[in-house]
Amino acid sequence: MTLEEKQQDIIDEFAIYDDWMDKYEYIIELGKDLPKIDEDLKTDDRLIEGCQSRVWLASEFKDNKMHFTADSDAIITKGIIGLLIRVLDQESPENIAKSDLHFISDIGLHEHLSPTRSNGLASMVKKIKMSALTQLAK
């Protein structure tokens, strides 16, 4: 599945919800299901401090693909992290660097990625892209 197909997949999944609470119920389930980041990796250098919630992000480069695990202390943030990882995990650094993550606004969650929301998600996306660019520069 391409990165674009993965985004479309998520948009289709969310299309069935017309109520905000149902949408968030689903995000919360995703948050609960997200494999947790290894406790050893929850170090300060992997911490993205938001005003509202905190995010830990670990990235790895293997077989020309980027691999991400992440966690948050807030479950809704974690659910959205789950979506971002589903789209970006196992992609090449090139794909990640040039990706346009439109699905977030398509499913009505753009407010969570606004830099002023300060839940750590906007910084997380920036960090993911930076790590992809760092790989490309090597």
Partner: peptide, 11 residues
């Protein structure tokens, strides 16, 4: 987490 409660109350 307060962020989760706050988000759901907002909606």
């Amino acid at each position: 987490h307060p962020f989760d409660i706050g988000t759901l109350l907002d909606k």
